[in-house]
Amino acid sequence: MKKQVVSREEWLEARTALLEHEKALTRHRDEVAAERLALPWVRVEKAYAFDGPDGKVTLSELFRGRSQLYIKHFMMAPGAQHQCVGCSLEVDHMTDLLPHLENHDVSYAVVARAPIEEIEIVRQRMGWRFLWVSSFGGDFNYDFNVSFRPQDVSAGLASYNFRPAPEWTATVQDLSGRSTFYKNEAGEIFHTYSSYGRGGEEILGIYGILDVMPKGRNETGPNHALTDWA
């Protein structure tokens, strides 16, 4: 890797110019955050239930006494032979953050379509301590657009990242994402936000480090993504 080497004064001039762009990005991020908070909500009418390590658990119970719930949609279909490295890298960020989130009225849960027995094998092997439940046999993954029935894809009824799901999702069948929910004092649950694809990069704090390193993300493998190195 060869870069231009300059004097401290020249470097400072270039760095100060970059700072203006960074500040503009920060201001724009604040604007987007405000727009995100202003999104309307959708009442969740369906009674979703999941298989947990200790038995059945409802969507309402995933809140665990708090008013806000963050769900990580983990890309793991029934019988999956390979663990999603991107999802794994993301949830690796979370274990030590959980007490801080919970103290701030946020519960965190991971949902995958694989049966709970398969999930528990992975969770225990990885040493993850967060709540991970299975939506196997239910509609949750399909309703929140992270799992895809081949017939729905071919009929144009499936979507991913708020667009018609591409044809290849009929083969992959499961992808990743995140969704957030709010529960009021009456027990009503509202879907407040979801994002997919590169929208999940905001959770990958490791990118905040890599983006300021001399080699940057250095994703130079065949996929040009974190799957080349994570």
Rank of each mutant, 00 (worst) to 15 (best):
M1A: 15
M1R: 06
K2E: 15
E9W: 10
L12T: 03
T16R: 13
A17D: 09
K23N: 02
L25M: 07
R29G: 12
A33P: 03
A34V: 02
A34Y: 03
R36A: 09
A38N: 02
V42C: 05
D51F: 14
G52P: 15
G55S: 12
E61S: 09
S67N: 03
I71V: 11
H73Y: 10
H73R: 00
F74I: 00
F74Y: 14
A77V: 00
P78T: 05
P78L: 04
P78D: 09
G79E: 00
A80E: 07
Q81K: 08
Q81F: 09
Q83F: 09
Q83N: 13
L89T: 07
E90T: 13
V91Y: 04
M94S: 01
D96K: 08
L98Q: 00
P99E: 01
E102L: 01
N103R: 01
Y108R: 07
V110K: 04
V111E: 14
A112Q: 12
A114G: 06
P115Y: 05
I119L: 13
E120V: 14
I121N: 12
Q124V: 08
M126R: 14
L131I: 15
V133G: 11
V133R: 13
S134W: 10
S134N: 14
S135M: 14
G138C: 10
D139S: 12
Y142R: 15
D143L: 08
F144W: 08
N145Y: 01
F148C: 04
D152M: 11
V153M: 02
G156M: 08
P164F: 06
A165H: 00
P166N: 04
W168P: 01
S176E: 07
G177N: 04
R178F: 15
F181Q: 03
Y182M: 13
Y182G: 08
E185C: 02
I189Q: 11
I189G: 05
Y196L: 02
G197I: 05
R198C: 09
R198A: 12
E202K: 06
G205I: 05
I206D: 07
L210D: 11
V212M: 13
M213E: 13
K215F: 15
P222E: 09
A225F: 06
L226D: 08
T227A: 07
D228K: 11
